[in-house]
Design a protein around this nucleic acid. Structure first.
Length: 566
RNA sequence: GUCCCCGUAGCUCAACGGAUAGAGCAGCAGCCUUCGAAGCUGUUGGUGGGGGUUCGAUUCCCUCCGGGGACGCCA
């Protein structure tokens, strides 16, 4: 809030957008701007001179907010007036919606994420899309967007033909002794992998072709496998505490439209035949051509994605259409967006939110085709088990049930935070050690901080700090860590806005970590409950409860739960 | 061969083009008769190489090196 205000005022005086920065040392001020450097260059003056000039222009407007110092090196530094932070805290402490906004009001955003394949259990590679997308959707929702959480199920294509081919070769009908009813995703994966290894490529293509042409047996099996898969997938979402999706649509849903889509493109002269296939020439976009129909007349991922895009635009008329999909598919989306542009159907802002892949411990790709995957369930089990050992060790008095519940929240929190705190572009090496680290810059550290703060509140017997607090009391908050906390609270909305702007979550994750670190410093230095000064005690409880609430809301936006006791 | 992403401390990662490049882990030295030690305090250690743009470059541009990925019948 304050940063935005400073930016507005300074920008107006400077006649261009100014950056509001944080000085490296608190002694230099609370905020600063480097705008004088930029203007000095243009006007041929000295930075210090320009800084002075701007200072005199903006001083009246900021008289009750901060003191301004123009440095000889050209920086313009702002020192908040005594009482300013306390007044801000007073307002924030009363605002249950703090951090939320209505800047997205009236706008619709579709966020596609997770998008697992049927017949293949979710593995570590699906995790990133799932938790990044879930958290991004939370953020846009908090900013007032109408947010559609879209799960685009990979339930069509040659890959599924391979499962069918494998099934027919090794499954129940081939005398495996297993009942069709008992088939699991693990079985399907097994068939898929074996088919890839031991059956000729055409087998899978043939089975898929039959499916696409409506073959009764294949259709029946496909339905069965799809149901089983979706059930397993939804269980995983529950365990991961992923927000419910608004739309589950599969690639198969678009299959019936593909014939007319292709006809339409042909009529418009957008696609042509080449070596028996139908292609979309993308030379003018400097991209490789897009393949829309294979020479055996079966369709492709790109074809279905195009149909799906048209469907989404038509049905929801979104302002933004977002795809949270791994880096690996960057070219696919470049082609898809180029085609959309060429067809003039992009009424929405299209964005591919890409992220690096999860690589094996050897730094190589983890390919499902080679059966070289880390199933998501294994990861969840392992991390929850580890959390369980730690929880038990820290709280010997808890019973089994409590240990179980707490370790679930802690384990999932660790898993999610470990991913979200990182900048999404880089590949991440799958590293059990880092993943299972529950201390330091980790999810449990933040959860621990939260429950520590709540613990003080519970012991204080002042449950409703809101009614007990008045701004005068808050003036008693003069410790450096108290000041630091109040200042950090002001940055919460900025952290959220940054995530929304750059489609990353690490800004919020790191913000919450910094806030927690300061809160822990405060915790060590200030013994709140021992205070003889009752007014100051209430003021500190207000501060604590506001920090705790911010931590909770921030973590919840990341899809991470908090507990009053962990 | 073409295109995309990445390269920062021993390891895993931060840093809207700004002041002294920050954390965690690991290592070392401390802090539990005081609100929860999953914590706190101190400490060792770094921008792949070379050019360029800029008052200022980890950030932008070029080039080289290294890692990953994608490139007409997978998704």
């Amino acid at each position: 809030m304050i940063r935005r205000k400073l930016q507005e005022i300074v920008s107006k005086a400077a006649g261009r957008t100014a950056d509001i920065l944080m000085p490296p040392d608190a002694k230099l001020g609370d905020y600063s701007t480097n705008i004088a450097f930029v203007l000095a260059k243009e006007q041929g003056k000295k930075p210090a001179e320009v800084a002075e000039q701007i200072k005199s222009q903006i001083e009246p407007g900021l008289a009750d907010t901060c003191d301004i110092k123009a440095l000889s090196n050209g920086y313009l530094n702002f020192f908040l007036k005594p009482g300013f932070l306390q007044n801000q805290l007073s307002e924030i402490s009363k605002d249950d919606r703090y951090g939320q906004s209505d800047e997205g009001k009236g706008k619709t955003i579709i966020v596609e994420y997770s998008s697992p394949n049927i017949a293949k259990p979710m593995h570590i590679g699906h995790l990133r899309s799932t938790i990044i997308g879930d958290a991004l959707a939370n953020i846009y929702e908090a900013l007032g967007y109408k947010t559609i959480r879209w799960n685009y199920i990979g339930d069509w294509g040659t890959q599924f033909g391979k499962v069918l081919a494998g099934y027919k070769k090794w499954g129940p009908s081939a005398g495996s002794g297993q009942a069709l009813e008992d088939v699991t995703m693990a079985d399907m994966l097994d068939w898929y992998v074996r088919a890839g290894k031991d059956l000729p490529e055409e087998e899978g293509q043939k089975e898929f072709k039959k499916l696409e042409e409506g073959d009764a047996e294949n259709k029946e099996l496909w339905k069965k496998f799809r149901d089983v898969s979706l059930r397993e997938i939804k269980t995983t979402y529950q365990i991961l505490e992923i927000h419910d999706f608004d739309v589950y649509k599969g690639e198969s849903d678009y299959d019936p439209q593909l014939g007319s889509l292709i006809e339409e493109l042909e009529r418009a002269g957008k696609i042509k035949e080449s070596e028996g296939a139908l292609i979309f020439d993308l030379d003018k976009y400097n991209l490789p051509l897009g393949l829309l129909r294979k020479s055996d007349r079966a369709t492709l991922y790109l074809t279905r994605d195009l149909a799906s895009m048209k469907d989404r635009l038509k049905e929801y008329n979104p302002d933004t259409l977002m795809y949270v999909v791994a880096n690996q598919q960057a070219l696919h989306f470049e082609q898809l967006f180029a085609i959309a542009h060429d067809l003039k159907i992009n009424t929405a802002y299209l964005v591919h939110v890409k992220f690096g892949m999860v690589l094996g411990e050897d730094g190589k790709k983890l390919a499902t085709r080679e059966g070289k995957v880390v199933p998501l369930q294994d990861v969840i089990e392992k991390i929850t088990a580890l959390a369980g050992t730690v929880v038990k060790q820290k709280n010997p008095e808890l019973d089994e049930r409590q240990v179980h519940d707490i370790s679930h929240v802690v384990g999932i929190g660790a898993l999610k935070y470990n991913d979200l705190k990182q900048h999404p572009y880089s590949d991440i090496a799958f590293d059990w050690k880092a993943m299972l680290d529950l201390s330091g810059n980790s999810g449990p550290y933040l959860q621990y901080t939260y429950s520590r703060l709540v613990s003080i509140l519970k012991k204080s017997e002042i449950l409703n700090t809101k009614s007990e607090t008045n701004p005068e009391n808050l003036k008693l908050l003069t410790e450096p860590t108290e000041r630091a906390l109040m200042k950090q609270l002001l940055d919460f909305p900025d952290a959220i806005a940054k995530c929304a702007e750059f489609y990353t979550l690490n800004a919020l994750a790191l913000y919450l970590y910094d806030l927690s670190a300061t809160a822990n410093q405060f915790y060590e230095l200030v013994h709140v409950l021992d205070d003889d000064n009752a007014a100051r005690k209430v003021a500190r409880l207000t501060l604590i409860s506001t920090v705790a609430r911010t931590l909770k809301q921030g973590l919840n936006l990341l899809g991470i739960q908090t507990l009053e006791r962990i």
